[in-house]
Simulated scan of single mutants.
Amino acid sequence: MREEYERDLHHAWMILETDELYKEDYQMRMLMENAIPGLLSVRGQGKDDKSQYRYEISGKISVKAKGEKEHWKFADLENFMRQFIQVLYAVKNYLLDVNCLSLDPGHIYVSDEIYYFCYCPGLEGNILEKFHELTEYFVRETDYEQKEAVYLAYELHKASMEENYNIEYALERILEKKENEMESIQPEKKAGYDLQEELILDDWIAEQEMKGQVVKDRQSVWGFLNQRLQKRRKKRESQWDEIMADDSEE
């Protein structure tokens, strides 16, 4: 697939070109005759035995550009995921193929915290595999100053490696698990959120390390996570030394 961009004083377009012969099938008629929530408006045409799809992106920035300006925080990730799930439902309701959604960060756009996805008829690939690749992007571009975001990004990535997983169920399971863990912490500690989240993340990081499932695309990221794990281990060792010291005094 090839992409290019056109702009004038008032509009901007993203143009995707595929090698398939253009067909005005039911998918294009459905896309052009309906304003499907969460999808970029598109017009298609044939050119030299190829297909071109022209997407209106005026006033929007790509998810890729957003990630380059600022790393993803927990609220951003949760908002994105909930809107993505709604788009999956909308696509199915209009009898379209969810596998034709592009989850390339450069093809997803956002404006005023509303995300718009690119539907490209004939696009190859499985939506679950595409989502797995998207979670790898989130893992790389998450704000590692915010442990809450780290937790969500890595749990989504882990869920995407399960066989025949359900995206909506995976998100709800992760958020519910986190909420339950938060509620189990004593109320007087909840004022300092970093403290409780450190407990949750340390257990999670240890689990990922044991399973060898942590993505290490960015050494600085792994260094940060490993540092948190080492901190907890040192704390345990210190507590053990104190116990041994008390025993020896007796």
Score class of each variant (00 low, 15 high):
Glu4Lys: 14
Glu4Tyr: 12
Arg7Met: 08
Arg7Gln: 10
Asp8Phe: 09
Leu16Lys: 06
Leu16Ile: 12
Thr18Asn: 09
Asp19Ser: 05
Leu21Gly: 00
Leu21Asn: 10
Tyr22Glu: 01
Lys23Pro: 02
Tyr26Trp: 10
Arg29Pro: 05
Met32Pro: 03
Ile36Ser: 04
Ile36Asp: 06
Ile36Gln: 03
Pro37Gln: 12
Gly38Gln: 11
Leu40Lys: 00
Ser41Asp: 08
Val42Leu: 04
Arg43Val: 11
Gln45Ala: 08
Gln45Met: 04
Gly46Arg: 03
Asp48Tyr: 15
Asp49Gln: 15
Lys50Asp: 07
Ser51Thr: 04
Gln52Asn: 09
Ile57Cys: 00
Gly59Phe: 13
Lys60Gln: 13
Ile61Gly: 06
Lys66Pro: 01
Glu70Cys: 07
His71Trp: 09
Ala75Arg: 15
Glu78His: 07
Glu78Phe: 10
Gln83Arg: 04
Phe84Tyr: 15
Gln86Asn: 12
Tyr89Glu: 13
Lys92Pro: 01
Lys92Ala: 07
Val98Lys: 10
Cys100Ala: 07
Leu101Asp: 01
Leu101Ile: 09
Pro105Tyr: 15
Val110Ser: 02
Asp112Tyr: 15
Ile114Thr: 15
Ile114Gly: 09
Tyr116Phe: 14
Cys118Asp: 09
Tyr119His: 09
Gly125Asp: 14
Ile127Trp: 14
Lys130Tyr: 14
Phe131Gln: 02
His132Gln: 07
His132Arg: 14
Glu136Ala: 10
Glu136Ile: 04
Glu141Thr: 08
Tyr144Val: 07
Glu145Phe: 09
Gln146Ser: 05
Val150Arg: 00
Tyr154Arg: 00
Glu155Ser: 03
Leu156Gly: 02
Leu156Met: 15
His157Tyr: 11
Lys158Asn: 12
Lys158Gly: 05
Ala159Thr: 07
Glu162Thr: 06
Glu163His: 06
Glu163Tyr: 09
Glu163Arg: 10
Tyr165Thr: 04
Asn166Pro: 04
Tyr169Thr: 10
Ala170Tyr: 08
Glu172Val: 02
Glu172Ser: 02
Arg173Asp: 04
Glu176Lys: 12
Ser184Thr: 13
Ser184Gly: 03
Glu188Val: 11
Lys189Ala: 08
Asp194Ile: 11
Gln196Pro: 01
Leu199Asn: 12
Leu201Asn: 03
Trp204Val: 02
Ile205Asn: 00
Gly212Lys: 08
Val214Asp: 01
Asp217Gly: 14
Gln219Val: 13
Ser220Tyr: 11
Ser220Pro: 06
Ser220Leu: 05
Trp222Ala: 00
Trp222Arg: 01
Phe224Ser: 11
Asn226Arg: 09
Gln227Ala: 12
Arg233Thr: 07
Lys235Gly: 11
Gln239Cys: 06
Trp240Leu: 12
Asp241His: 08
Glu242Val: 13
Ile243Thr: 08
Met244Tyr: 10
Ser248Glu: 07
Ser248Thr: 11
